[in-house]
Simulated scan of single mutants.
Amino acid sequence: MPEHDPEQELGPKFASAFQDRSATSELRGAGLAAVARKRVRRRRRALNGVAASVLVVVAVGGAWSVLGSGGTPTNSAGSAEVPTAAKDNRTQGIAPSYEADTACPTDHPIKGVEEAGAVPAGLDVSTPVTGLQACRYQVPGGEVLGHERFDAKVAQQVVDAIKVLPERNPALPVFKCAPEAARPTEAIALRFSTAAGIREIWVEYTGCTTPGFFTGSRTYGLFAAPLKLFMTGSVRPSGSTYLNALTGW
């Protein structure tokens, strides 16, 4: 009988163990490789998705701004939508409309005037003016019969044409009439814009004793030169005793 040798018995066991370890290492390596490949594919898909999103945003004129870990879209200059706050800010500083800012006051002192020249906020004709609103009123009563608005150039022309006039126009007739007939039936309030606010000159051309321009401190005679500058449109009367006797207006 051959002699038992322990080393011969251990040899096959070592060989089998090494073989099993090698197989395990190969499987583990294959598994790690597969995991790595999966991770690479996921990263590629994520990158492709981001790239596609960027292309879509650029195509519509937008831009993405990433804050921290999350992305938040922000409108670029090419966006057609304007935030509400911006819309509100754009309206600041805009002048009021004509209807809201320049309507003739219905409750005007001229409607109850008892004497010529009673102008509570008269214009000093040496004051620069920046605009003019002419309001034609029924007197008494105060109904607005017409109104027109003029720019700074015309407003200053009206003032310049008035301030050189004498106190009376000698070419106009002189009437003797009863007190009831002496009162005007209509008049025009010239409302001038100045740095100190609205200042007025009243124009009377009806009745029989008080034609002219009144500033509250001075009287100027009724002449055609100033009248033809502002007696236009609805402010232009159909006529009166004094206007019928005055040419050129």
Results as ranks from 00 to 15, higher is better:
116 A>T: 04
156 Q>V: 07
153 K>I: 15
215 T>L: 07
176 K>T: 14
12 P>R: 06
200 E>Y: 01
208 C>M: 10
167 E>S: 07
236 R>W: 07
240 S>L: 02
32 L>S: 09
58 V>S: 11
182 A>V: 04
29 G>A: 15
211 P>G: 01
196 A>F: 06
93 G>S: 07
191 R>Q: 13
192 F>E: 08
198 I>V: 13
154 V>A: 08
8 Q>F: 12
166 P>S: 01
118 A>C: 04
86 A>Q: 05
176 K>H: 13
194 T>H: 11
187 A>D: 03
35 V>A: 10
27 L>A: 14
126 S>M: 08
246 L>A: 05
80 A>N: 08
180 E>F: 05
150 F>T: 00
98 Y>G: 06
88 D>P: 00
165 L>G: 06
162 I>D: 00
91 T>P: 01
134 A>M: 04
144 V>A: 13
146 G>C: 04
138 Q>T: 14
125 V>Y: 03
84 T>L: 14
24 T>G: 13
80 A>Q: 02
54 V>E: 11
117 G>T: 05
203 V>L: 09
148 E>N: 02
150 F>E: 00
207 G>K: 03
150 F>K: 00
12 P>G: 11
54 V>H: 12
181 A>H: 12
85 A>M: 05
136 R>W: 10
228 K>H: 02
111 K>I: 05
151 D>C: 13
38 K>E: 14
129 V>Q: 00
148 E>G: 02
